[in-house]
């Protein structure tokens, strides 16, 4: 598997560290209520298909990336810098 880092170009997966679902970018408001926080902290989908994950290019430029990939085919369809994702 190779990930096309927007900074460094296409690099081997071993340079990257998987950090979990990109839901971490959608942190609820402080007073959003228990359901929203329960969902944010604990509940994750496990789709056979498109997922949106955070990866860290730890052995490269150090960027945090949002990687859209297909868990069925392993195809990576989109990679963007996490800081450029509109929240």
């Amino acid at each position: 598997m190779r990930i096309n880092c927007p900074v460094c170009g296409e690099r081997d997966r071993r340079e990257f560290y998987y950090v979990g679902d990109a839901v971490a970018l959608d942190r609820p408001d402080r007073d959003a209520g228990l359901d929203a926080w329960d969902s944010y902290v604990h509940l994750r989908d496990n789709p056979a298909g498109l997922t949106r994950d955070l990866w860290h290019h730890e052995a490269g430029c150090g960027a945090w990336l949002v990687v859209t990939r297909n868990t069925g085919t392993h195809a990576v369809s989109d990679v963007v810098l996490a800081r450029e994702v509109v929240r």
Binding site: C8, R14, E15, E58, A59, G60, C61, G62
Partner: peptide, 9 residues
Amino acid sequence: MRTLVGHMT
């Protein structure tokens, strides 16, 4: 390039 040499950054 920032990359790996073996297991080292």
